[in-house]
């Protein structure tokens, strides 16, 4: 079902243990199951303005992971007591559609995982949005995962960032999401679902590209302090290509808009 070029035929693998072993054998040679180099992202696709009702919207794919984000606002806050007198509030919802996973249907009600991810995405976006320009309002960011193949939270952050820019909301920078992981001693970027499930560590990172600041940093698995720093370096490198693609998409949107209004 994967559209990625694969190095091995996944349909011939019978058990998770076997896949784990193959992944680790490949990693010792610096290889990955889908044939990518350790520092290579999957193909990225970005579009903005995909939903006409939203003030801003974006679609971002990292390989087979598909995230869409819609931004509504700045708009009035209901209930009103949530409003802040000196700035806008940001409301973020990350949600996976029930059909987004390859195995069983995911129940649509929010899980503890989705509640946590909604929070860390909000805190990844808050440092970039100029909330103080819109007191007493809310800026709502809604994210739906249509297909999940690893790295969904970081693809969501890139999508949210593009949707905010598409909505014309002033920001200090673009924030780009990228996941870093490790398989054995090999540090890799942009994990797919197998690398996420059977690797030895996962570290999602969001980076404000121009300011060089990290606004989301999580990790699990087992890492040495030196591996963490190598992972952070790889993330900065990957963020550069994501940033270029994101900037170009936003730029071309305004170039198009200028053409049609002349």
């Amino acid at each position: 079902m994967s559209s990625q070029p694969t190095l091995i035929d996944l349909s011939k693998i019978t058990s998770p243990a076997e896949l784990r072993r193959i992944m680790h054998d490949l990693a010792r040679e610096g290889k990955r199951i889908d044939g990518r180099a350790p520092d290579q992202m999957r193909p990225i696709r970005m579009e903005v303005g995909i939903l006409s009702n939203a003030d801003g919207s974006a679609l971002v794919t990292y390989g087979d992971t598909v995230a869409i984000a819609a931004v509504y606002g700045p708009r009035e806050v209901h209930p009103r007591h949530l409003a802040l007198p000196d700035r806008a509030i940001l409301r973020v919802r990350y949600h996976m559609t029930p059909f987004s996973t390859p195995d069983e249907r995911k129940r649509p009600e929010p899980t503890r995982r989705e509640i946590e991810i909604s929070k860390v995405i909000r805190q990844a976006l808050e440092p970039v949005v100029l909330l103080e320009q819109f007191p007493r309002t809310t800026i709502d960011v809604f994210i739906e995962i249509l297909q999940a193949d690893g790295s969904t939270r970081v693809a969501s952050i890139t999508a949210a960032s593009l949707a905010l820019a598409d909505a014309g909301i002033p920001m200090k920078d673009l924030v780009l999401g990228v996941s870093v992981g490790k398989i054995g001693d090999l540090i890799i970027v942009d994990l797919n679902r197998y690398e996420d499930a059977y690797g030895d560590g996962d570290m999602p990172i969001a980076i404000m590209y121009n300011k060089g600041l990290v606004t989301l940093l999580q990790a699990d698995g087992q890492w040495s302090p030196e591996e963490i720093m190598r992972g952070v370096e790889l993330a900065y490198k990957a963020a550069e290509s994501i940033y270029r693609a994101a900037r170009d998409v936003i730029k071309s949107k305004y170039v198009e808009a200028a053409k049609t209004t002349q």
């Binding site: 440092p127 606004t215 999580q218 990790a219 302090p225 591996e227």
Partner: peptide, 10 residues
């Protein structure tokens, strides 16, 4: 290192 969680800020 077995977990990292940044909460507020940058």
């Amino acid at each position: 290192i077995v977990a990292i969680q940044k909460t507020d800020g940058a």
